[in-house]
Nucleic acid binder design. Structure first.
Lengths: 235, 235
DNA sequence: ATATTTACCTTGTATATACAAGATGGCTTG
DNA sequence: CAAGCCATCTTGTATATACAAGGTAAATAT
C-alpha cells in the first residue's frame, strides 16, 4: 500500500521545516510549483498546503503565497483527559465511590456559576475516583436540575457524571481553569491525606444549547496527579 | 452570495449538532445526499464534511458513513501562553529581572533532562516575571550550550529566553507537565512570599532538530496565577 | 442451510478545468 | 512626475469526472 501523493508532499514540507532548512516566515513553493515538482495536479498540491495550514504549520495569504508559520504564535496546549480512561491506560485498577448525591439550595456563588436563581434547588454530587483503591481525585459537581432531571437516580459507578450529562444535554461549550490550592480539612479526609499537601484543582463549567449544565471542581493531590501536554510538528 | 457554499453546509451541520437535533454517534447525510440537498457538487459537500472531521466534530469511516463525534472522546485543552503577553493583555505593567545567568556543571537529573553528559557544562538562568512590580512567575531554565552558544550574552529584559531560543534553534517539539507543589525557601524568596502557599509548576522541555534545547521550570503562586482553557463547537 | 459472490452503498484519492479575488510590478496615459 | 490601468503572479471556490477501497446486505451457488 503506497502512501497518498498529498501525504508525501506534506511529509516533504514538514521534513524541511523540522530540519531547519526552511525558517520561520520563509516563503514556500506555490501550488503550481509544487504540482510541477511532484508531477501532480494543482488540486493535490493544494491539499497538502491546505491541510498543513489548518494544522498551523503554514500560513497562506491570497495573492501573496504560502509561508512557514512563526512558532511564537503557537500557544502550547494541555490536555484534560477523562480520569477513568487515564487510569485504565496505565493498567491501574479504576473504581469510583459516591460520597454525596443530593439536592440542595443554591447559595449565591453556586447559583451564579450555574446561572440559576439564588436559593433555587440544584443537584450536588461528590465522587472519589480511585486508582488501585487509593483516592486519586475528588469530583464535586453542581448540576442544573432543569437540564438533567433524573441526575439523582443515576449509578455513577457505572457511567461518570460527565458521560451521563453529555448524553442528556448535548454539550456545546466547556471552560476550564487550573490552579494550585491547599485543600481544606474536608477535602483532606476525602483524599485520605494525612498531612497537608498542595493540590491541583480544575474548575470546569459546561454549556449546552439550553444553558449552563453543570459546574465541577476536580481536586487531585499534587504528589499523585499532573497534567501533561505535547506539541509537535509531526503530523 | 457572500459566504461560500461549503461554509453554509458546515454551518448547517454545526447548528444541528449545537441545537441537539443531531445526537452523538448519529449518522449524518452522505456526501451525495448533501450534494443533492444543497444543489452542489459532491466535492463541495465533501469539503464541509472533511473540515468538520478535521475539527473533531464529525468522524468518518470508509464504507460506513459520517457520524457526529462523541463528546467523550474530545479531550479538553488548556493553553500555556507567553506570560509577558498575558500581563500586557490585561493592561498590567510587565517587567522582568534577571537573578542568575551562569554556566554550571550539570548534575545527573539536569544532564538527563537535557540529554548531555553528567558534569558537562550547561547554561542556567533564573528570571522573575513581574506584573506591576510584583513577582508573578519564576523561570528557572537550563540550556544546552551546544545549541545556543551565546545564551549568556543575551539581554533577557528585552527578549524572553523562549523567544531567543526559538530564533537560534528552530523548535520542533515541546512537552509540558503541570503540577501543584509547595515552594522551597529559595523559591519563596524569589516570589516574595511571606507565608507558604501552594504554587503551580509548569515543566517545559523543548526540542529542535539537533536535540534537546532547554529545560524550564515555571513556578507561580497559586493565589496569583491560573491556567485557562476553552472548548467550543463554534468554528 | 451455509458459504460465496455480487451489487450497491459509503468514503478516499486524483485530475482537469473554470472563474473569482488579492497582491504586485510595469506600462500607459493624463 | 504621478495616477491609473493592465498583465501576471498568487490563493480561493466550485464543478465534473474517474477509479480505488471499505462495508453491508441481498442474491446466488454449493
Amino acid at each position: 500500500m503506497t502512501t497518498p501523493k498529498f501525504a508525501q508532499i506534506k511529509q516533504f514540507i514538514v521534513d524541511n521545516i523540522r530540519s531547519g532548512a526552511w525558517l520561520e516566515n520563509q516563503r514556500v513553493a506555490s501550488e503550481n510549483e509544487l504540482a510541477e515538482q511532484f508531477s501532480v495536479s494543482r488540486m493535490t498540491a493544494r491539499r497538502a498546503l491546505s491541510e498543513l495550514t489548518e494544522a498551523g504549520i503554514l500560513t497562506r495569504s491570497q495573492g501573496l503565497g504560502t509561508f512557514v508559520a512563526s512558532f511564537k504564535s503557537q500557544s502550547s496546549l494541555l490536555e484534560i483527559k477523562n480520569i477513568a480512561d487515564e487510569v485504565k491506560a496505565r493498567n491501574g485498577n479504576y473504581s469510583c465511590t459516591v460520597l454525596v448525591l443530593e439536592s440542595i439550595s443554591a447559595v449565591a456563588p453556586i447559583a451564579i456559576a450555574l446561572g440559576v436563581e439564588v436559593d433555587s434547588v440544584v443537584y450536588r454530587s461528590v465522587l472519589v475516583h480511585n486508582e488501585n483503591e487509593q483516592p486519586l481525585q475528588v469530583e464535586e459537581r453542581f448540576v442544573n436540575p432543569a437540564l438533567a432531571t433524573s441526575y439523582l437516580q443515576q449509578d455513577f459507578t457505572a457511567l461518570t457524571p460527565h458521560e451521563y450529562l453529555s448524553s442528556v444535554a448535548p454539550l456545546t461549550e466547556a471552560r476550564h481553569t487550573v490552579e494550585a490550592i491547599m485543600p481544606n480539612s474536608e477535602m483532606c479526609q476525602w483524599l485520605n491525606l494525612y498531612h497537608e499537601e498542595p493540590c491541583l484543582q480544575v474548575i470546569r463549567r459546561t454549556w449546552s444549547s439550553s444553558g449552563i449544565v453543570s459546574f465541577a471542581r476536580l481536586v487531585s493531590p499534587g504528589s499523585k496527579y499532573r497534567l501533561g501536554g505535547h506539541l509537535t510538528f509531526k503530523k
